[in-house]
Computed example of a mutant assay.
Amino acid sequence: MTVFRILLGIFTIAILLFTGLVIQNHGWNLFPVFFGDIAAMTWAGQFNFDFMCFLTLSGLWLAWRHRFSMVGIILGIMGFFGGIMFLAPYLLIMSFKSNGDMNELLLGDYRGD
């Protein structure tokens, strides 16, 4: 669990630094570039579409983990739009709340059904 938590910390710091540099160099113009690459049917677009599918799964998992409650839906939306910048800190926090129990971390603390 320690290695997993370190990895999540590295992901969080790295993506924050990388995102800061991209914003500094290119501004906040993410969506036109992201969807423009998809519309152009390029390899960059293929990667973006694949990534968007992963983001969708991430958001659905977060909402499911919280039984599609209002909090779960909000977390799911944050996971979809935030990507690893949201998911890594979320998992890090939940890893401590679950005392390192991977079943609880992945399924939530009340999954007995």
Rank of each mutant, 00 (worst) to 15 (best):
F35I: 09
F35R: 03
F35E: 01
G36H: 04
G36R: 05
G36A: 08
G36S: 09
G36C: 07
D37Y: 04
I38P: 00
A39F: 11
A39N: 14
A39P: 02
A40S: 15
A40H: 11
M41V: 12
M41Y: 10
M41F: 14
T42R: 12
T42A: 12
T42F: 13
W43F: 14
W43K: 14
A44T: 09
A44D: 11
A44K: 10
G45S: 11
G45H: 07
Q46E: 12
Q46P: 00
Q46D: 13
F47C: 09
F47D: 10
F49T: 09
F49Q: 12
D50K: 05
D50Q: 08
D50H: 11
M52N: 04
M52P: 01
M52V: 05
C53E: 04
F54S: 13
F54W: 13
F54H: 08
L57N: 14
S58P: 01
G59K: 03
G59N: 10
G59W: 10
G59C: 09
G59Y: 13
G59F: 14
G59M: 08
L60H: 09
L60Q: 06
W61T: 09
W61R: 05
W61P: 09
W61L: 11
L62Q: 07
L62A: 13
L62N: 02
A63R: 00
A63M: 07
A63Y: 02
W64Y: 12
W64Q: 03
W64T: 05
W64M: 05
R65Y: 09
R65A: 06
R65L: 09
R65S: 08
H66S: 14
R67Y: 09
R67W: 05
R67F: 06
R67A: 07
R67I: 01
R67T: 05
F68V: 08
F68Q: 10
S69T: 15
S69V: 06
S69W: 10
S69Y: 13
S69G: 08
S69I: 04
M70V: 05
M70R: 08
V71M: 03
V71E: 05
G72P: 00
G72K: 02
I73V: 15
I73K: 08
I73W: 05
I74T: 11
I74K: 12
I74Y: 09
L75Q: 02
L75A: 03
G76R: 01
G76E: 02
I77P: 00
I77N: 00
I77M: 06
M78A: 15
M78I: 11
M78S: 10
G79D: 02
F80V: 02
F80T: 00
F80C: 00
F80R: 01
F80H: 01
F81S: 12
F81I: 14
F81D: 10
F81Q: 10
F81K: 05
F81V: 14
G82F: 04
G82M: 05
G82Y: 06
G82V: 04
G82C: 07
G83K: 04
G83F: 06
G83H: 07
I84V: 15
I84T: 13
I84Y: 11
I84R: 02
M85W: 03
F86G: 00
F86W: 09
F86K: 03
F86N: 00
A88T: 06
A88Q: 02
A88V: 05
P89E: 08
P89K: 07
Y90I: 05
L91V: 10
L91S: 06
L92C: 12
L92S: 04
I93C: 13
I93P: 04
